[in-house]
Design a protein around this nucleic acid. Structure first.
Length: 87
DNA sequence: TAGTTGACCGGAA
DNA sequence: ATTCCGGCCAACT
């Protein structure tokens, strides 16, 4: 059984605790490739499961990136609700 | 198999 | 501080 990059990414994002945020770079590094930040985004876009809090994954610039469930605006609201974003 | 696209990153102007 | 450009990786056609 071979775990693909996407599988690892999902596993990593799933381990993100509530009220915390991780950058695509960090997730990519934990998945095996620190330069695969773009690939992480692509994986999230193609594989968004309820077990994977993809809304807790943000950009390294401090931005939120995008969201497949309502856009970056909803994503920001969720992060504030979770306590990861105080502003 | 090869080419194009994109929830990104980092440096330069 | 903002805007532009190139580079990296995985998925889709």
């Amino acid at each position: 059984m071979k775990k693909t990059f996407a599988d690892k990414v999902r596993d990593v994002v799933r381990k993100i605790p509530r009220g915390k945020t991780m950058t695509y770079k960090q997730v990519a590094a934990k998945a095996g490739n620190a330069r695969a930040a773009r690939a992480v985004g692509a994986v999230m876009r193609t594989n968004y499961l309820p077990d994977v809090p993809c809304h807790r994954v943000i950009r390294s610039d401090g931005g939120l990136g995008n969201y497949n469930r309502g856009g970056a605006t909803i994503k920001r609201e969720i992060l504030i609700k979770e306590g990861a974003l105080t502003k």
